[in-house]
Amino acid sequence: MPRLLMVAHDHLSPGGAVSARFEERGYEITELLVVPEDRFDDPAVEVTFPDPREYDALLVLGAKWSVYGDEVAGWVKPELEMIRTADDAGVPVFGICFGGQLLAQAHGGSVEPSRAPEIGLHAVQGEPAVDGLWFEWHFDGFTPPPDATVIGRNAAAPQAFVLRRNLGLQFHPEVDADGLKGWLGAGGREGAQALGLDSDVLVEHVRATDPATRARAAALVDHFLDVIAVR
Rank of each mutant, 00 (worst) to 15 (best):
A89E: 10
A186E: 12
F49Y: 07
H9V: 06
H223K: 09
S19Q: 13
V130W: 04
H223P: 00
E118D: 09
G152Y: 02
A123L: 12
D41R: 14
R84F: 07
V35I: 08
A217Q: 04
W75L: 08
E31Y: 09
L32E: 03
V150T: 15
G109M: 10
V175A: 12
E54W: 01
V35E: 03
V60S: 14
F94A: 02
H223N: 02
H122A: 15
V91A: 09
G132D: 10
D88G: 15
V150S: 06
G141D: 13
D41S: 13
E136V: 05
D88S: 15
P36G: 08
R216S: 13
L163I: 02
G168A: 01
V93I: 13
K64G: 06
D210C: 07
V227P: 04
D56P: 02
F94S: 03
A20F: 08
A104L: 04
G100S: 05
V150K: 08
V35W: 00
G187N: 00
I119S: 02
A160P: 10
A57C: 09
E71F: 06
P113Q: 10
A8P: 01
M6V: 07
R39L: 06
A89K: 04
V67W: 06
A129C: 10
E118S: 05
G191S: 12
A217G: 09
L184Y: 08
Q193E: 14
G152S: 06
G62F: 03
E28Q: 06
P50F: 05
W137G: 00
I96C: 04
R3D: 03
T209D: 15
D176F: 02
G126I: 10
G74A: 15
A208V: 08
S199E: 14
M1D: 08
Y68V: 11
G99H: 05
D140C: 11
R207D: 10
H11G: 09
P2R: 13
G185W: 05
S13W: 03
S114G: 13
P158Y: 10
G90I: 00
A208T: 09
D88Y: 03
H223I: 00
P113F: 04
A116H: 14
L169A: 13
F40T: 11
P43F: 02
T213I: 11
P128V: 06
E112A: 15
Q125R: 15
G141Y: 01
P211C: 09
F161T: 02
Q170G: 10
S19V: 07
G69C: 01
T85Y: 03
F22T: 05
F135C: 05
L80I: 12
A63I: 08
D222I: 00
D42Y: 06
R25L: 13
E79W: 01
M82C: 13
F142M: 14
A177M: 02
A129G: 04
V60I: 15
S13Y: 03
L58S: 04
A148G: 11
K181V: 13
S110D: 04
D88L: 13
E127P: 00
G188L: 09
L195F: 12
V221A: 14
I228K: 03
G16H: 06
V130I: 12
E46S: 15
L121W: 11
P50T: 07
V91D: 04
E28C: 05
I83E: 03
R231V: 03
A219R: 15
L58T: 09
T30P: 01
T213V: 07
P2D: 12
F22R: 03
G99R: 04
G99T: 04
P146A: 11
P146S: 11
T30Q: 14
I119G: 05
Q193P: 00
M6K: 07
P173T: 04
V60M: 11
